[in-house]
Amino acid sequence: MDPLFKLNTCLTNPDLSGQQKLEMVCATVHKLIPGADRVSLWLFNESKSQVSSLICFDATSKSWCDQITLRREDFGIYFDAILNREFVDAPDAATHPDTKCFNESYFTPLNIQSLLDYILHRNFEPQGILCCESVGRQVHWSEEDKQTLKKIARSCSFFFNLSTN
């Protein structure tokens, strides 16, 4: 079965919990996007002054990570980039102008080298972020990777009310 069709079926299944749907999104992204060693979904607060992780899957350790919150006052350049452009593609995350703000507190401790993010919407307004991170190596995300992430993010935005989890 096509993984995107399977994901859409999962997202519309009323018998699955919100947690199960989040886990399916992470598993699908990891499966379809080479180099996506960590996959996470994030939810903005109402004022877009912070974003909190709903779920994070680390394929390198095969574990689910603790939830964290990032504040705009600490990472304003990234917040501006993702909210204005809807996409952040940082193959060298440590030097990329939109993501280097994460080096000390996030990238270095977790050995994250590359990042690919796409915004999640609800009613055409930014609601959250779907995030891919590579661990221990740089990844130059292909156009196909970007389009796949965009499709998955749109499916999540269309079918999944993130604020209910």
Rank of each mutant, 00 (worst) to 15 (best):
S142K: 11
S142M: 11
K100A: 03
K6Y: 14
C132G: 02
G76M: 07
L11F: 05
A59S: 15
E23P: 00
L32G: 00
K62W: 09
E23A: 08
Q127E: 14
H140M: 04
P91Y: 14
E46P: 01
I129A: 09
R38K: 14
L70H: 07
H140I: 13
A81L: 00
L4Y: 03
Q20P: 01
L70R: 01
I68R: 15
K151S: 10
N123S: 12
V51G: 00
P109T: 10
D89Q: 14
Y78N: 04
L116G: 02
E46F: 13
F107V: 05
C156Q: 11
L115P: 00
L32K: 02
L11Y: 06
K31W: 09
L149H: 04
D92N: 15
G76P: 01
I129T: 02
H96N: 12
D145E: 04
Q127Y: 03
L16E: 13
T69S: 13
S157T: 03
Y118Q: 07
R71C: 06
E86M: 12
D66G: 05
I55V: 05
D92W: 01
N165V: 15
E86H: 12
P14E: 13
S114P: 00
N13K: 09
A36H: 10
D2L: 02
S17G: 08
D58K: 08
L83Y: 11
F160R: 05
E125G: 00
R72E: 10
T60Y: 07
L43P: 00
C101E: 11
L41F: 07
T9Q: 15
T148K: 12
Y78K: 03
L41T: 14
I68S: 03
D98Y: 12
I55T: 09
I55R: 04
L41V: 13
K146Q: 13
Q147N: 13
Q113M: 15
Y118W: 12
Q138A: 08
W141A: 03
A90Q: 02
A94R: 10
A81N: 01
L120M: 02
R38I: 09
H140A: 07
K21S: 05
P97K: 07
S163Y: 06
H140Q: 12
V39D: 06
I112G: 03
E104M: 06
F159Y: 15
E23N: 04
K146N: 03
Q19C: 03
D2Q: 11
V88I: 13
C65K: 07
D66S: 13
E143D: 14
L120R: 11
D66T: 12
Q67I: 12
D15V: 09
V29M: 10
F158N: 09
D66E: 15
N84V: 00
V39Y: 06
R72L: 11
K21V: 08
D92R: 10
F159S: 09
K21I: 04
N161R: 08
L115G: 04
Y118S: 03
L43V: 07
N103G: 01
F44E: 06
